[in-house]
Design a protein around this nucleic acid. Structure first.
Lengths: 156, 156
DNA sequence: CCTGGCGTTGACGTCGGGGTCAAGGTCTAC
DNA sequence: GTAGACCTTGACCCCGACGTCAACGCCAGG
């Protein structure tokens, strides 16, 4: 199997596969013409990677699972290192979800207060046309989400 | 007030203030020597920005609040545009939290299953020393969090 | 006068996960 | 023998919110 076929098979792109190879995550054998050659085993490894990526794991975090499969285990999470990653990820998820819920409450409270203030200043008359429609596309905000921890710079 | 003092006052850095100015978010008057000069009003605007940033708002999302304050309103969320941002953010938070909770459940289920498999393969004897401690630092994973939406590329 | 601590602009680096060329080699079918 | 579908490497581009230089100006104290 060559790179294009593997990419199609796994629902990803050739660029991505070369990227994984550059990271040492999914190295490929080469044919006589220099083309990358993959087999079914590689497809399994790749599927494992994509599954974890879809969960939001970083690439490096998928490495123990890939190593585990390559070591001959039937599933990528049969090794202790993989379980460790699961546990760390769970803790991280709990932490992040918790923080987001706090933020959600705070923002919700701000909104409620601000709306109250607004109706308080706008007596009975329903005549508030201060701001016009800015023409936002509503489908767009599905991009990425960040939570501010600390910056990643050197010393602070 | 000069840039260093304002930064200290608001708990941020001069680089950040110059960045905000470059984005047109917090422009500064200049003294005769070319130094930026700020007043108490700027400090208020800056505090508003930082508050929202701490909530995870993107810089552009703070603009309506800043404009609102600058328009003379007592609080940055007194304007309809700000309320809109609050509402969009709430919806976004709910969506993200929901997805993260789904992921959390899936990962939790995977972990539980994998742990079961492991104890099943390790009969009564507690002798499993396959993988050694890799020496991870545990304080480290507080960096950023991502949720995979779709890539931002052109067409798909 | 010199040092040190402020300030200035501009440019490049960071992080992750790739997208998107460009210039060429290989293979297959017609 | 040639089109066109595949493959190769290398290089630059993207996003957001800054960090981190470099190379200089301004100003106060000793």
């Amino acid at each position: 199997m060559r790179i294009g076929e593997l990419a199609r098979e796994a629902g990803t792109t050739t660029r991505t596969l070369r990227y994984y190879e550059a990271r040492g995550l999914l190295p490929a054998r080469r044919g006589e013409n220099g083309y990358r050659r993959y087999d079914e085993e590689d497809l399994r490894l790749l599927r494992q990677i994509r599954l974890l990526q879809d969960f939001g794991f970083e690439l490096e975090e998928t490495r123990p699972f890939v190593d585990c499969l390559r070591a001959g285990h039937p599933s990528g999470d049969a090794c202790p290192a993989s379980l460790e990653v699961y546990r760390r990820k769970l803790a991280e998820l709990d932490s992040v979800i918790g923080r987001l819920q706090e933020v959600r409450e705070q923002v919700g409270a701000q909104l409620a207060r601000a709306e109250l203030d607004a109706t308080a200043r706008t007596p009975p008359e329903p005549r508030c046309e201060l701001a016009q429609d800015q023409g936002h596309d509503q489908e767009h905000d599905q991009e990425r989400y960040r939570v501010r921890g600390e910056g990643h710079g050197g010393d602070e």
